[in-house]
Design a protein around this nucleic acid. Sequence first.
DNA 1: CGATCAATTGACTTAGCTCAAAGCATGTGG
DNA 2: CCACATGCTTTGAGCTAAGTCAATTGATCG
Lengths: 226, 226
Amino acid sequence: MAAFRAAIRFDQGSGEVADQLCAIGEYLSLAPGDELAVDTDDDRLIYIASGAAKLLSQARSGSGMQAGSHVLAFQFAGDIVSVLRKPAGGSSLVALSEVDLIAFSANQFLDIAQGDPAVLRAVLVKSLDSLQRTRTRMMHLGHQTARQRIAGFLVSMADRICGCTGGKCEFLLPMGRSDIGDSLGLTIETVSRQFTDLRKEGLVSTPSRSMVCLTDIDALKREAGT
Amino acid sequence: MAAFRAAIRFDQGSGEVADQLCAIGEYLSLAPGDELAVDTDDDRLIYIASGAAKLLSQARSGSGMQAGSHVLAFQFAGDIVSVLRKPAGGSSLVALSEVDLIAFSANQFLDIAQGDPAVLRAVLVKSLDSLQRTRTRMMHLGHQTARQRIAGFLVSMADRICGCTGGKCEFLLPMGRSDIGDSLGLTIETVSRQFTDLRKEGLVSTPSRSMVCLTDIDALKREAGT
DNA sequence: CGATCAATTGACTTAGCTCAAAGCATGTGG
DNA sequence: CCACATGCTTTGAGCTAAGTCAATTGATCG
Protein backbone atom coordinates (compact mmCIF):
# COMPACT_ATOMS: atom_id res chain seq x y z
CA MET A 1 0.00 0.00 0.00
CA ALA A 2 2.96 2.23 0.58
CA ALA A 3 3.92 1.77 -3.06
CA PHE A 4 0.42 2.76 -4.06
CA ARG A 5 0.63 5.98 -2.09
CA ALA A 6 3.90 6.83 -3.75
CA ALA A 7 2.54 5.96 -7.18
CA ILE A 8 -0.15 8.60 -7.15
CA ARG A 9 1.79 10.99 -4.98
CA PHE A 10 -0.35 10.99 -1.93
CA ASP A 11 2.49 12.67 -0.14
CA GLN A 12 1.40 15.86 -1.83
CA GLY A 13 -2.00 15.64 -0.23
CA SER A 14 -3.43 14.92 3.18
CA GLY A 15 -3.00 11.49 4.73
CA GLU A 16 -6.68 11.53 5.46
CA VAL A 17 -7.64 11.13 1.82
CA ALA A 18 -5.20 8.25 1.49
CA ASP A 19 -6.90 6.54 4.43
CA GLN A 20 -10.31 7.03 2.91
CA LEU A 21 -9.10 5.54 -0.37
CA CYS A 22 -7.60 2.56 1.40
CA ALA A 23 -10.96 1.99 3.01
CA ILE A 24 -12.81 1.57 -0.29
CA GLY A 25 -10.03 -0.33 -2.10
CA GLU A 26 -10.46 -4.06 -2.53
CA TYR A 27 -7.22 -5.93 -2.09
CA LEU A 28 -7.10 -8.99 -4.36
CA SER A 29 -4.76 -11.74 -5.56
CA LEU A 30 -5.09 -13.53 -8.88
CA ALA A 31 -3.51 -16.77 -10.07
CA PRO A 32 -2.17 -16.95 -13.65
CA GLY A 33 -5.10 -17.11 -16.07
CA ASP A 34 -7.62 -15.70 -13.59
CA GLU A 35 -9.82 -12.90 -14.82
CA LEU A 36 -10.72 -10.02 -12.55
CA ALA A 37 -14.40 -10.50 -11.75
CA VAL A 38 -16.40 -8.14 -13.94
CA ASP A 39 -18.38 -5.45 -12.22
CA THR A 40 -21.18 -4.49 -14.57
CA ASP A 41 -22.40 -1.56 -12.48
CA ASP A 42 -19.40 0.70 -12.48
CA ASP A 43 -16.06 1.39 -14.14
CA ARG A 44 -13.09 0.45 -12.04
CA LEU A 45 -9.63 1.76 -11.46
CA ILE A 46 -7.05 -0.94 -10.73
CA TYR A 47 -3.68 -0.41 -9.14
CA ILE A 48 -1.32 -3.31 -9.90
CA ALA A 49 0.85 -3.93 -6.87
CA SER A 50 2.85 -6.82 -8.30
CA GLY A 51 2.87 -9.27 -11.20
CA ALA A 52 1.86 -8.94 -14.83
CA ALA A 53 -1.54 -8.90 -16.53
CA LYS A 54 -3.10 -8.37 -19.93
CA LEU A 55 -5.92 -5.93 -20.62
CA LEU A 56 -8.46 -7.41 -23.05
CA SER A 57 -11.12 -5.75 -25.12
CA GLN A 58 -14.40 -7.39 -24.22
CA ALA A 59 -15.78 -8.95 -27.40
CA ARG A 60 -19.50 -8.77 -28.00
CA SER A 61 -21.34 -12.11 -27.94
CA GLY A 62 -22.64 -13.10 -24.55
CA SER A 63 -21.67 -16.75 -24.56
CA GLY A 64 -18.66 -18.89 -25.34
CA MET A 65 -17.65 -17.61 -28.77
CA GLN A 66 -14.17 -16.18 -28.52
CA ALA A 67 -14.71 -14.14 -31.67
CA GLY A 68 -12.60 -11.03 -31.28
CA SER A 69 -11.34 -10.66 -27.73
CA HIS A 70 -8.04 -8.91 -28.30
CA VAL A 71 -5.13 -7.87 -26.13
CA LEU A 72 -5.15 -4.09 -25.71
CA ALA A 73 -2.11 -3.77 -23.51
CA PHE A 74 0.14 -5.46 -20.98
CA GLN A 75 0.26 -4.11 -17.46
CA PHE A 76 2.97 -4.43 -14.84
CA ALA A 77 3.55 -3.56 -11.20
CA GLY A 78 2.92 0.13 -10.52
CA ASP A 79 0.47 0.64 -13.37
CA ILE A 80 -2.98 2.12 -12.87
CA VAL A 81 -5.50 0.61 -15.28
CA SER A 82 -9.06 1.61 -15.97
CA VAL A 83 -11.37 -1.33 -16.62
CA LEU A 84 -14.65 -0.22 -18.16
CA ARG A 85 -18.00 -1.81 -17.49
CA LYS A 86 -19.74 -3.82 -20.23
CA PRO A 87 -21.95 -1.35 -22.09
CA ALA A 88 -19.14 1.13 -22.71
CA GLY A 89 -17.08 -1.23 -24.91
CA GLY A 90 -15.97 -2.96 -21.74
CA SER A 91 -12.58 -4.39 -21.05
CA SER A 92 -11.25 -7.06 -18.73
CA LEU A 93 -8.04 -7.84 -16.93
CA VAL A 94 -6.47 -11.32 -16.99
CA ALA A 95 -3.49 -12.28 -14.85
CA LEU A 96 -0.40 -13.58 -16.66
CA SER A 97 1.52 -14.36 -13.48
CA GLU A 98 0.62 -14.25 -9.80
CA VAL A 99 -0.88 -10.77 -9.43
CA ASP A 100 -1.65 -8.59 -6.41
CA LEU A 101 -3.87 -5.62 -7.06
CA ILE A 102 -6.11 -3.03 -5.48
CA ALA A 103 -9.46 -2.39 -7.15
CA PHE A 104 -11.51 0.78 -6.77
CA SER A 105 -14.90 1.80 -8.02
CA ALA A 106 -14.05 4.67 -10.36
CA ASN A 107 -16.87 6.83 -9.06
CA GLN A 108 -16.11 6.27 -5.40
CA PHE A 109 -12.44 6.89 -6.09
CA LEU A 110 -13.17 10.16 -7.84
CA ASP A 111 -15.62 11.28 -5.17
CA ILE A 112 -12.95 10.93 -2.52
CA ALA A 113 -10.07 12.16 -4.67
CA GLN A 114 -12.08 15.29 -5.37
CA GLY A 115 -11.34 16.22 -1.77
CA ASP A 116 -7.67 16.41 -2.69
CA PRO A 117 -6.99 18.20 -5.98
CA ALA A 118 -3.36 17.11 -5.94
CA VAL A 119 -4.37 13.46 -6.18
CA LEU A 120 -6.88 14.20 -8.91
CA ARG A 121 -4.29 16.13 -10.86
CA ALA A 122 -1.73 13.34 -10.48
CA VAL A 123 -4.19 10.81 -11.86
CA LEU A 124 -5.09 13.16 -14.71
CA VAL A 125 -1.46 13.68 -15.68
CA LYS A 126 -0.92 9.91 -15.53
CA SER A 127 -3.85 9.34 -17.84
CA LEU A 128 -2.80 12.06 -20.28
CA ASP A 129 0.59 10.35 -20.47
CA SER A 130 -1.12 7.06 -21.03
CA LEU A 131 -3.19 8.61 -23.79
CA GLN A 132 -0.10 9.91 -25.53
CA ARG A 133 1.68 6.56 -25.29
CA THR A 134 -1.37 4.79 -26.66
CA ARG A 135 -1.63 7.29 -29.52
CA THR A 136 1.99 6.81 -30.41
CA ARG A 137 1.59 3.06 -30.31
CA MET A 138 -1.53 3.33 -32.43
CA MET A 139 0.36 5.28 -35.03
CA HIS A 140 3.05 2.64 -35.06
CA LEU A 141 0.58 -0.20 -35.39
CA GLY A 142 -0.69 1.39 -38.56
CA HIS A 143 2.68 1.99 -40.16
CA GLN A 144 5.23 -0.50 -38.85
CA THR A 145 6.39 -3.80 -40.31
CA ALA A 146 6.31 -7.04 -38.32
CA ARG A 147 10.03 -6.77 -37.60
CA GLN A 148 9.70 -3.22 -36.28
CA ARG A 149 6.81 -4.21 -34.05
CA ILE A 150 8.65 -7.15 -32.52
CA ALA A 151 11.83 -5.12 -32.01
CA GLY A 152 9.82 -2.33 -30.40
CA PHE A 153 7.96 -4.81 -28.24
CA LEU A 154 11.19 -6.34 -26.94
CA VAL A 155 12.69 -2.93 -26.20
CA SER A 156 9.57 -1.93 -24.33
CA MET A 157 9.48 -5.15 -22.30
CA ALA A 158 13.15 -4.80 -21.38
CA ASP A 159 12.35 -1.37 -20.00
CA ARG A 160 9.16 -2.31 -18.18
CA ILE A 161 10.20 -5.72 -16.84
CA CYS A 162 13.80 -5.13 -15.84
CA GLY A 163 14.31 -1.41 -16.27
CA CYS A 164 16.92 -1.77 -19.03
CA THR A 165 17.05 0.88 -21.74
CA GLY A 166 20.36 -0.01 -23.34
CA GLY A 167 23.13 -2.62 -23.57
CA LYS A 168 22.43 -6.26 -22.69
CA CYS A 169 19.46 -7.59 -20.80
CA GLU A 170 17.75 -10.86 -19.92
CA PHE A 171 14.27 -11.55 -18.59
CA LEU A 172 11.25 -13.84 -18.55
CA LEU A 173 8.33 -12.92 -20.78
CA PRO A 174 5.14 -13.49 -18.80
CA MET A 175 3.01 -13.85 -21.95
CA GLY A 176 2.98 -16.41 -24.77
CA ARG A 177 3.57 -15.82 -28.49
CA SER A 178 -0.15 -15.78 -29.01
CA ASP A 179 -0.68 -12.80 -26.70
CA ILE A 180 2.31 -11.00 -28.19
CA GLY A 181 0.95 -11.43 -31.68
CA ASP A 182 -2.49 -10.37 -30.65
CA SER A 183 -1.30 -7.18 -29.03
CA LEU A 184 0.79 -6.27 -32.08
CA GLY A 185 -1.74 -7.26 -34.69
CA LEU A 186 0.33 -10.19 -35.95
CA THR A 187 -0.19 -13.96 -36.15
CA ILE A 188 1.64 -16.46 -33.94
CA GLU A 189 3.55 -17.71 -36.97
CA THR A 190 4.79 -14.27 -37.94
CA VAL A 191 5.89 -13.56 -34.37
CA SER A 192 7.78 -16.83 -34.34
CA ARG A 193 9.45 -16.14 -37.69
CA GLN A 194 10.59 -12.71 -36.53
CA PHE A 195 12.06 -14.23 -33.38
CA THR A 196 13.87 -16.73 -35.56
CA ASP A 197 15.30 -13.98 -37.77
CA LEU A 198 16.47 -11.93 -34.80
CA ARG A 199 17.99 -15.06 -33.32
CA LYS A 200 19.91 -15.78 -36.55
CA GLU A 201 21.23 -12.22 -36.52
CA GLY A 202 22.39 -12.65 -32.95
CA LEU A 203 20.24 -9.85 -31.54
CA VAL A 204 18.19 -12.17 -29.38
CA SER A 205 18.49 -15.60 -27.84
CA THR A 206 15.81 -17.71 -26.22
CA PRO A 207 17.29 -20.32 -23.87
CA SER A 208 13.85 -21.49 -22.76
CA ARG A 209 10.32 -20.88 -23.96
CA SER A 210 9.75 -17.69 -22.03
CA MET A 211 13.27 -16.48 -21.34
CA VAL A 212 14.77 -13.94 -23.69
CA CYS A 213 18.25 -12.41 -23.78
CA LEU A 214 18.66 -9.17 -25.68
CA THR A 215 22.30 -8.80 -26.66
CA ASP A 216 22.05 -5.24 -27.98
CA ILE A 217 19.05 -3.15 -26.98
CA ASP A 218 20.30 -0.12 -28.89
CA ALA A 219 20.46 -2.14 -32.11
CA LEU A 220 16.89 -3.29 -31.48
CA LYS A 221 15.84 0.31 -30.98
CA ARG A 222 17.30 1.12 -34.37
CA GLU A 223 15.42 -1.83 -35.88
CA ALA A 224 12.21 -0.59 -34.31
CA GLY A 225 12.69 2.71 -36.12
CA THR A 226 11.37 4.56 -33.10
CA MET B 1 -16.69 30.90 -24.87
CA ALA B 2 -20.07 29.81 -23.61
CA ALA B 3 -19.65 26.57 -25.51
CA PHE B 4 -16.30 26.06 -23.86
CA ARG B 5 -17.80 26.49 -20.40
CA ALA B 6 -20.44 23.94 -21.20
CA ALA B 7 -17.91 21.54 -22.66
CA ILE B 8 -15.94 21.14 -19.49
CA ARG B 9 -18.92 21.71 -17.24
CA PHE B 10 -17.91 24.91 -15.63
CA ASP B 11 -21.46 25.24 -14.47
CA GLN B 12 -20.64 22.68 -11.80
CA GLY B 13 -17.95 24.93 -10.41
CA SER B 14 -17.54 28.54 -9.49
CA GLY B 15 -17.74 31.21 -12.14
CA GLU B 16 -14.55 32.62 -10.74
CA VAL B 17 -12.45 29.73 -11.98
CA ALA B 18 -14.00 30.08 -15.41
CA ASP B 19 -13.00 33.72 -15.47
CA GLN B 20 -9.44 32.90 -14.48
CA LEU B 21 -9.23 30.30 -17.23
CA CYS B 22 -10.56 32.72 -19.80
CA ALA B 23 -7.82 35.11 -18.75
CA ILE B 24 -4.98 32.71 -19.61
CA GLY B 25 -6.60 31.25 -22.74
CA GLU B 26 -5.26 32.41 -26.10
CA TYR B 27 -8.02 32.85 -28.64
CA LEU B 28 -6.76 32.01 -32.16
CA SER B 29 -7.98 31.54 -35.73
CA LEU B 30 -6.24 29.35 -38.30
CA ALA B 31 -6.65 29.23 -42.06
CA PRO B 32 -6.69 25.82 -43.80
CA GLY B 33 -3.19 24.37 -43.81
CA ASP B 34 -1.95 26.56 -40.94
CA GLU B 35 -0.12 24.83 -38.13
CA LEU B 36 -0.63 25.87 -34.54
CA ALA B 37 2.64 27.56 -33.55
CA VAL B 38 4.63 25.08 -31.48
CA ASP B 39 5.36 25.98 -27.91
CA THR B 40 8.48 24.10 -26.91
CA ASP B 41 8.33 25.06 -23.25
CA ASP B 42 5.09 23.55 -22.19
CA ASP B 43 2.39 21.08 -23.15
CA ARG B 44 -0.84 22.70 -24.26
CA LEU B 45 -4.51 21.98 -23.99
CA ILE B 46 -6.54 23.13 -26.99
CA TYR B 47 -10.28 23.64 -27.08
CA ILE B 48 -11.58 23.60 -30.66
CA ALA B 49 -14.42 26.11 -30.93
CA SER B 50 -15.21 25.55 -34.61
CA GLY B 51 -13.80 23.92 -37.75
CA ALA B 52 -11.78 20.75 -38.29
CA ALA B 53 -8.11 19.95 -37.73
CA LYS B 54 -5.71 17.02 -37.84
CA LEU B 55 -3.42 16.05 -34.98
CA LEU B 56 0.00 15.00 -36.27
CA SER B 57 2.76 13.08 -34.58
CA GLN B 58 5.85 15.22 -34.73
CA ALA B 59 8.48 13.28 -36.65
CA ARG B 60 12.04 13.54 -35.46
CA SER B 61 14.43 15.40 -37.81
CA GLY B 62 14.63 19.10 -37.15
CA SER B 63 14.52 20.35 -40.73
CA GLY B 64 12.46 19.87 -43.86
CA MET B 65 12.38 16.06 -44.11
CA GLN B 66 8.80 14.94 -43.94
CA ALA B 67 9.92 11.43 -43.00
CA GLY B 68 7.22 10.02 -40.78
CA SER B 69 4.84 12.74 -39.73
CA HIS B 70 1.62 10.82 -39.42
CA VAL B 71 -1.99 11.73 -38.73
CA LEU B 72 -2.90 10.61 -35.21
CA ALA B 73 -6.49 11.80 -35.18
CA PHE B 74 -9.00 14.25 -36.59
CA GLN B 75 -10.52 16.82 -34.29
CA PHE B 76 -13.76 18.73 -34.60
CA ALA B 77 -15.63 21.52 -32.85
CA GLY B 78 -16.06 20.81 -29.14
CA ASP B 79 -13.01 18.55 -28.81
CA ILE B 80 -10.31 19.14 -26.22
CA VAL B 81 -6.89 18.13 -27.56
CA SER B 82 -3.60 17.88 -25.75
CA VAL B 83 -0.63 18.95 -27.84
CA LEU B 84 2.65 17.82 -26.31
CA ARG B 85 5.88 19.75 -26.46
CA LYS B 86 8.75 18.45 -28.57
CA PRO B 87 10.88 16.29 -26.26
CA ALA B 88 7.92 14.20 -25.14
CA GLY B 89 7.19 12.71 -28.55
CA GLY B 90 5.60 16.02 -29.52
CA SER B 91 2.54 16.47 -31.64
CA SER B 92 1.16 19.33 -33.70
CA LEU B 93 -2.21 20.55 -34.84
CA VAL B 94 -2.88 21.54 -38.46
CA ALA B 95 -6.11 23.19 -39.59
CA LEU B 96 -8.11 21.44 -42.31
CA SER B 97 -10.72 24.16 -42.58
CA GLU B 98 -11.07 27.61 -41.03
CA VAL B 99 -10.55 26.88 -37.32
CA ASP B 100 -11.24 28.87 -34.17
CA LEU B 101 -9.63 27.60 -31.01
CA ILE B 102 -8.61 28.45 -27.49
CA ALA B 103 -5.12 27.43 -26.39
CA PHE B 104 -4.02 26.94 -22.78
CA SER B 105 -0.72 26.15 -21.22
CA ALA B 106 -1.36 22.74 -19.65
CA ASN B 107 0.38 23.65 -16.41
CA GLN B 108 -1.35 26.99 -16.00
CA PHE B 109 -4.65 25.35 -16.81
CA LEU B 110 -4.13 22.64 -14.22
CA ASP B 111 -2.92 25.11 -11.60
CA ILE B 112 -6.14 27.05 -11.89
CA ALA B 113 -8.41 24.05 -12.39
CA GLN B 114 -6.97 22.61 -9.20
CA GLY B 115 -8.97 25.31 -7.43
CA ASP B 116 -12.11 23.66 -8.67
CA PRO B 117 -12.11 19.85 -8.36
CA ALA B 118 -15.27 19.58 -10.43
CA VAL B 119 -13.48 21.00 -13.47
CA LEU B 120 -10.47 18.79 -12.89
CA ARG B 121 -12.69 15.75 -12.58
CA ALA B 122 -14.57 16.62 -15.77
CA VAL B 123 -11.33 16.89 -17.71
CA LEU B 124 -10.11 13.62 -16.21
CA VAL B 125 -13.27 11.76 -17.17
CA LYS B 126 -13.02 13.24 -20.69
CA SER B 127 -9.46 12.05 -21.00
CA LEU B 128 -10.24 8.56 -19.68
CA ASP B 129 -12.95 8.34 -22.33
CA SER B 130 -10.50 9.51 -24.92
CA LEU B 131 -8.04 6.88 -23.78
CA GLN B 132 -10.62 4.15 -24.12
CA ARG B 133 -11.63 5.32 -27.61
CA THR B 134 -8.02 5.47 -28.69
CA ARG B 135 -7.38 1.99 -27.30
CA THR B 136 -10.36 0.59 -29.13
CA ARG B 137 -9.23 2.26 -32.33
CA MET B 138 -5.74 0.93 -31.81
CA MET B 139 -7.06 -2.58 -31.47
CA HIS B 140 -8.99 -2.15 -34.69
CA LEU B 141 -6.00 -0.77 -36.56
CA GLY B 142 -4.16 -3.95 -35.75
CA HIS B 143 -6.86 -6.35 -36.79
CA GLN B 144 -9.12 -4.76 -39.40
CA THR B 145 -9.02 -5.02 -43.19
CA ALA B 146 -8.87 -1.94 -45.42
CA ARG B 147 -12.59 -2.21 -46.12
CA GLN B 148 -13.47 -2.35 -42.44
CA ARG B 149 -11.28 0.67 -41.70
CA ILE B 150 -12.86 2.79 -44.43
CA ALA B 151 -16.37 1.77 -43.46
CA GLY B 152 -15.63 2.54 -39.83
CA PHE B 153 -14.05 5.84 -40.78
CA LEU B 154 -17.13 6.91 -42.74
CA VAL B 155 -19.48 5.91 -39.93
CA SER B 156 -17.39 7.86 -37.46
CA MET B 157 -17.26 10.95 -39.68
CA ALA B 158 -21.02 10.85 -40.24
CA ASP B 159 -21.44 10.92 -36.48
CA ARG B 160 -18.86 13.59 -35.75
CA ILE B 161 -19.53 15.91 -38.68
CA CYS B 162 -23.29 15.82 -38.99
CA GLY B 163 -24.43 13.86 -35.96
CA CYS B 164 -25.91 10.98 -37.97
CA THR B 165 -25.76 7.48 -36.48
CA GLY B 166 -28.13 5.67 -38.83
CA GLY B 167 -30.06 5.93 -42.09
CA LYS B 168 -28.88 8.27 -44.85
CA CYS B 169 -26.45 11.11 -44.52
CA GLU B 170 -24.46 13.55 -46.64
CA PHE B 171 -21.51 15.75 -45.74
CA LEU B 172 -18.23 17.34 -46.85
CA LEU B 173 -15.01 15.62 -45.82
CA PRO B 174 -12.57 18.30 -44.68
CA MET B 175 -9.52 16.09 -45.33
CA GLY B 176 -8.10 14.56 -48.51
CA ARG B 177 -7.55 10.88 -49.31
CA SER B 178 -3.96 11.20 -48.29
CA ASP B 179 -4.85 12.21 -44.72
CA ILE B 180 -7.51 9.54 -44.53
CA GLY B 181 -5.06 6.88 -45.59
CA ASP B 182 -2.44 8.12 -43.21
CA SER B 183 -4.75 8.08 -40.23
CA LEU B 184 -5.89 4.54 -41.04
CA GLY B 185 -2.51 3.12 -41.95
CA LEU B 186 -3.42 2.68 -45.63
CA THR B 187 -2.06 4.12 -48.87
CA ILE B 188 -3.93 6.68 -50.99
CA GLU B 189 -4.49 4.06 -53.67
CA THR B 190 -6.03 1.57 -51.28
CA VAL B 191 -8.34 4.23 -49.86
CA SER B 192 -9.42 5.14 -53.36
CA ARG B 193 -10.02 1.51 -54.34
CA GLN B 194 -12.17 0.96 -51.27
CA PHE B 195 -14.22 4.05 -52.10
CA THR B 196 -14.67 2.68 -55.59
CA ASP B 197 -15.87 -0.69 -54.28
CA LEU B 198 -18.34 0.92 -51.87
CA ARG B 199 -19.56 3.14 -54.70
CA LYS B 200 -20.14 0.11 -56.94
CA GLU B 201 -22.13 -1.53 -54.17
CA GLY B 202 -24.26 1.60 -53.79
CA LEU B 203 -23.30 2.20 -50.16
CA VAL B 204 -21.60 5.50 -50.92
CA SER B 205 -21.64 8.14 -53.61
CA THR B 206 -19.20 11.00 -54.16
CA PRO B 207 -20.78 13.81 -56.20
CA SER B 208 -17.71 16.01 -55.84
CA ARG B 209 -14.19 15.50 -54.59
CA SER B 210 -14.92 16.07 -50.95
CA MET B 211 -18.67 15.46 -50.73
CA VAL B 212 -19.84 12.01 -49.65
CA CYS B 213 -23.36 10.59 -49.40
CA LEU B 214 -23.82 7.53 -47.23
CA THR B 215 -26.95 5.72 -48.34
CA ASP B 216 -27.06 3.21 -45.49
CA ILE B 217 -25.07 3.94 -42.37
CA ASP B 218 -26.27 0.78 -40.66
CA ALA B 219 -24.97 -1.35 -43.52
CA LEU B 220 -21.63 0.43 -43.23
CA LYS B 221 -21.58 -0.31 -39.53
CA ARG B 222 -22.02 -3.97 -40.35
CA GLU B 223 -19.18 -3.75 -42.86
CA ALA B 224 -16.98 -2.15 -40.23
CA GLY B 225 -17.53 -5.20 -38.03
CA THR B 226 -17.63 -2.95 -34.98
C1' DC C 1 8.29 -41.62 -19.99
C1' DG C 2 4.76 -40.47 -22.67
C1' DA C 3 0.90 -36.89 -23.16
C1' DT C 4 -0.03 -32.31 -24.21
C1' DC C 5 0.30 -27.89 -25.68
C1' DA C 6 3.26 -24.14 -27.31
C1' DA C 7 6.57 -22.90 -30.76
C1' DT C 8 8.72 -23.51 -35.07
C1' DT C 9 9.12 -24.42 -39.93
C1' DG C 10 7.40 -25.06 -44.67
C1' DA C 11 4.37 -24.37 -48.80
C1' DC C 12 1.05 -21.62 -50.67
C1' DT C 13 -2.38 -17.65 -50.99
C1' DT C 14 -3.63 -13.01 -50.76
C1' DA C 15 -4.44 -8.18 -49.20
C1' DG C 16 -2.40 -4.24 -49.65
C1' DC C 17 1.93 -1.67 -51.29
C1' DT C 18 4.72 0.21 -55.17
C1' DC C 19 5.37 2.06 -59.49
C1' DA C 20 3.31 4.13 -63.42
C1' DA C 21 -0.18 6.06 -66.29
C1' DA C 22 -4.47 8.19 -67.06
C1' DG C 23 -8.79 11.06 -65.49
C1' DC C 24 -10.96 14.83 -63.25
C1' DA C 25 -11.65 18.90 -60.36
C1' DT C 26 -10.32 23.46 -59.19
C1' DG C 27 -8.30 27.65 -60.11
C1' DT C 28 -5.89 31.16 -63.26
C1' DG C 29 -4.96 33.98 -67.17
C1' DG C 30 -6.22 35.30 -71.66
C1' DC D 1 -16.33 32.42 -70.63
C1' DC D 2 -13.09 29.17 -72.21
C1' DA D 3 -8.33 27.00 -72.43
C1' DC D 4 -4.77 25.39 -69.87
C1' DA D 5 -2.01 24.15 -65.82
C1' DT D 6 -1.76 21.98 -61.33
C1' DG D 7 -2.71 18.85 -58.04
C1' DC D 8 -5.90 15.40 -56.38
C1' DT D 9 -8.03 11.03 -57.46
C1' DT D 10 -8.74 6.91 -59.88
C1' DT D 11 -7.21 2.80 -62.35
C1' DG D 12 -3.90 -0.74 -63.86
C1' DA D 13 -0.08 -4.24 -63.43
C1' DG D 14 3.10 -6.53 -60.79
C1' DC D 15 5.39 -7.56 -56.16
C1' DT D 16 5.97 -8.50 -51.38
C1' DA D 17 5.00 -8.95 -46.60
C1' DA D 18 2.13 -11.22 -43.86
C1' DG D 19 -1.75 -14.52 -43.34
C1' DT D 20 -3.48 -19.43 -43.80
C1' DC D 21 -3.16 -24.23 -43.67
C1' DA D 22 -0.58 -28.10 -42.30
C1' DA D 23 3.05 -30.78 -40.44
C1' DT D 24 7.04 -31.16 -37.09
C1' DT D 25 9.67 -30.19 -33.30
C1' DG D 26 10.38 -29.18 -28.70
C1' DA D 27 9.27 -27.96 -23.80
C1' DT D 28 6.77 -28.88 -19.56
C1' DC D 29 4.21 -31.63 -16.40
C1' DG D 30 1.81 -35.30 -14.46
